[in-house]
Design a protein around this nucleic acid. Structure first.
Lengths: 152, 152
DNA sequence: TTTGAAATTTTTATGGC
DNA sequence: GCCATAAAAATTTCAAA
């Protein structure tokens, strides 16, 4: 399914999800119909999950990013915590991890006052035994769609 | 610039960056022309940074995610490290932080063998004094375009 | 799976409010 | 800023290889 051509198509779409099938067809040397057919297949197979837009956080009033380490005192609290996290509008990412803390959350908000509020909310989730917050001073890199390089 | 209407437009585009301007125009009760004009303005202003695609990592052979804490022994190594990180194909995110380590990297790759190689590469970057790696057991949440809720 | 061409839909351009 | 229309361009469909 993922051959050299589909990888090139994905690269085009990653760079600009709104690019025209005719542009892609030139780059991959295939007809427009074939390109569209391949894209449809990748959508149906779930390889392409979603077309989306990257927004400048600062211009929509989200000027503050923080990473928060969260630990649970017992795994029985896992499901409830996950539910809360999924619903929280300021949690952009949440990963369950190996190591000395259990979760790492990326929090995006507009002010330190708001972060303080969020921090308090998370600390009060049942089972949360410890948190540690790191402010993001600068985001060096932030890529969303990683593609393998081993087919090149 | 970011009023209620533009926020609704961004919500549509976030859900599906390829959705038709006519669909958006129905949802926000505006003409197709007005919708397109507002989108063009947000592109020009840099509010809309990029249209992109979310890809299922597993289906393209990226089955392993890790978070790596990295510390520098001296700030003079900052620029070179940043250059290396930006060019590294398996580093999806890199944030410069406050706290007891300096950077947090998100690494996406296909195997633990490959992660071991990447880990060695990063440890050998000049100035890197310490690293600590956390395996991602499960990604609970991963949103790319956060929008403010205070205009609702 | 790919292609090419017709049918349909969308986008762009423009003039007026 | 917004709208409506017309022209241009894109996508979808479909028969055929």
């Amino acid at each position: 399914m993922i051959d050299r051509i589909n990888l090139d198509i994905l690269r085009c779409l990653r760079e600009n999800a709104r690019c025209k099938a005719s542009d892609i067809s030139h780059k991959v040397n295939l007809s427009v119909s074939a390109v569209i057919e391949r894209i449809r297949r990748m959508e149906a197979a779930g390889i392409i999950r979603q077309y989306t837009v990257l927004i400048d956080p600062k211009q929509v009033g989200n000027d503050l990013t923080a990473l928060m380490e969260v630990s649970l005192e017992h795994p029985k609290y896992y499901d409830d915590l996950v539910d809360m996290i999924r619903r929280h509008p300021n949690v952009a990412e949440c990963h369950y991890l190996t190591g000395e803390f259990d979760f790492l959350l990326k929090i995006i908000t507009d002010s330190s006052a708001s972060l303080e509020q969020i921090h308090r909310t998370i600390k009060s989730i049942p089972g949360v035994s410890a948190t540690k917050t790191h402010f993001v001073l600068k985001t060096i890199k932030d890529e969303v769609a990683m593609l393998p390089d081993h087919l090149d």
